[in-house]
Design a protein around this nucleic acid. Structure first.
Lengths: 186, 186, 186, 186
DNA sequence: CCTTAATCGAGACGGTACGTCGTGTCTTTAT
DNA sequence: ATAAAGACACGACGTACCGTCTCGATTAAGG
């Protein structure tokens, strides 16, 4: 008989089970029952923590996002820094999380939040430093660095993910950086 | 007793009922049963046409998108033309359709398509003319008009919709056009 | 694939499954789920007909009672007639039904009925003829035959069943007839 | 904060809480949780003493039965003595206990006992004296006083309670005594 | 014009998941 | 040691949809 889990250990087991279900079957076939089953626990344990599917999915996304905080690259060139980050996002679960986050209509209604805030809260994008270094190197014009411009390449990547449901080809990443982002900041 | 509908009339009634359900309750609470009920018909009639929820939703989105084809504005200035179009999108059901289209995971898997193609197939964006006129007026540099750049303001609007689930403030539209789009084409 | 049952056939299958569950596991461990399982159907089918456990149990008892209507003996002597009937009751499922009927508190509250009425409605005891024949034979004094006296041996048997939960020994049956019932009607 | 109870005081509090739950909600909706709640204690405290629902109910019935031992009337006439006792039973919780006792299938199975024994053990019916006095007064024929006959009016009352779930009308009590019991003992 | 075939409307069926509640076990804190 | 608080694993509850199916009634089209 496996010993009885509780507290944080149990919670992690639940969120991990949930994440595996999400990746294996997708949001549409994501089932509380399956999570309960996979985690080897019982409905009440789940519902005590998250009152419904959407709550659980949201918690799972945040949990997984927190576990996979991206490293901030430092290649010596803004272009490479930004591209590296985009490639990492493109290759990891952040992508899947982005798509899933759009499904949480119920949760957003309940809390007045939105997918963007969830992704931010999960700590998707700690990129301030990148730009500071680029400015220090004299690569870019500081006045042009509005928040919108800083977010631009990542917004476009996110848009690409949300409208193709597939990994974005590297050529597209370069196109975004070279023909949209860099011309605006130099 | 109202006489029995058939063929195209019945089909339109079903899609309209489906659309109303979608707008009133959202994708998550969208139910075949409710559509059947609202249309005053019976399950088989629905399933004869669309084999499952996602098929029906997809058909509904395409149907509604076709009904609401946007007019192409002609204000004499590219800035105003683009802004006008964005404002219209922002104010109409195209917005809702954009969000819904992301939910059709099942459908895309079955057909190898993606949300973007659905929106395009639905005829979201007939904007070629806008740019031709702007070039003719000498407002912009033709070589810079890559497909990506032409799509840029609309991609960013779409991204905004998909990450905020809310109407985009007019200020944001102007910011997109004035600080991102126009600088790249002039 | 077994063909789909409906209407009366399905209903009988459900009630039979329910009765088997009742006899095998008793009222306390009687489960809607188990009935659904055993009948190879699904919850809604059960709940469409009987809104809860008690409704189903009641229907099952009535159904089974109706199927096992006792024959009216004709031995030529009132003593033997009554004893024969009591022995039959004692040996058959009528006994179990008697015990179960007491458990239906919920049902009685809802309908203002009582265990007695359920048993009567199920047609437990069609014994009028017995007494008519005994009177015709001159065995007994008609004036003494009040309803209570006629019911007496069966009431006492029932009481015995309800307080012992076991088949009543034959000696007890005879004692009831010989020392209580017969002295009162001769 | 009220000080912590232990031993007999705690036990009585639990049984009283259980009895109140039983009378308020009936056996079917009787819940360990509710008893725990009402007694302001915790599950283990309950389960340490009674291993399951039926054990607790049984203990509660015995406890309550012991608290409500009936007085033995002495009116000078057997008829009145017996009727008085029946009326008391009819008016008190003994009635409810009778009904509940039938529900303890689990307990009986575990111990090889039966409802009758439980009621007897609880001391329901200390009526020997009644008959001794009646014999002494010359009211009745001693040889006829078999145990069955002595129990007869009470058995019939109990039967009535068990098949009607309601207080027995006074007329019925008199009918039992006058047309069944007394004719057999005079 | 009348039969024939299709499809409509109604609703039951077998299934899966939902979110809730109760049981009996167990751990932790503190009296 | 045991009370109180409360989590845990289990499993049934009754409900809601899904997608399939059977049935009789209606309608359109063809002989």
């Amino acid at each position: 008989m496996p010993e009885r889990r509780r507290g944080a250990a149990l919670e992690k087991a639940l969120l991990d089970a949930a994440w595996e279900e999400l990746t294996e079957h997708g949001y549409a076939r994501f089932t509380m029952d399956a999570v309960v089953q996979r985690a080897g626990t019982s409905p009440s344990v789940l519902y005590r923590r998250w009152s419904d599917r959407d709550e659980l999915v949201r918690a799972t996304l945040v949990h997984t996002l927190a576990e996979s905080r991206l490293g901030v690259p430092d290649t010596g060139s803004l272009r490479e820094d930004v591209l590296t980050l985009m490639r990492e996002i493109n290759a990891t679960r952040v992508q899947l999380i982005t798509v899933m986050s759009v499904h949480l209509a119920g949760y957003y209604q309940g809390t007045g939040t939105s997918p963007g805030e969830l992704l931010a809260a999960g700590g998707e994008n700690p990129v301030g430093v990148l730009f500071e270094r680029a400015v220090a190197r004299g690569e870019i014009t500081p006045e042009r660095l509005t928040p919108r411009i800083k977010a631009l390449p990542f917004d476009l990547l996110r848009h690409e993910v949300l409208t193709t449901f597939a990994p974005v080809p590297d050529g597209v990443l370069e196109e975004i950086v070279d023909t949209v982002f860099l011309p605006l900041v130099r």
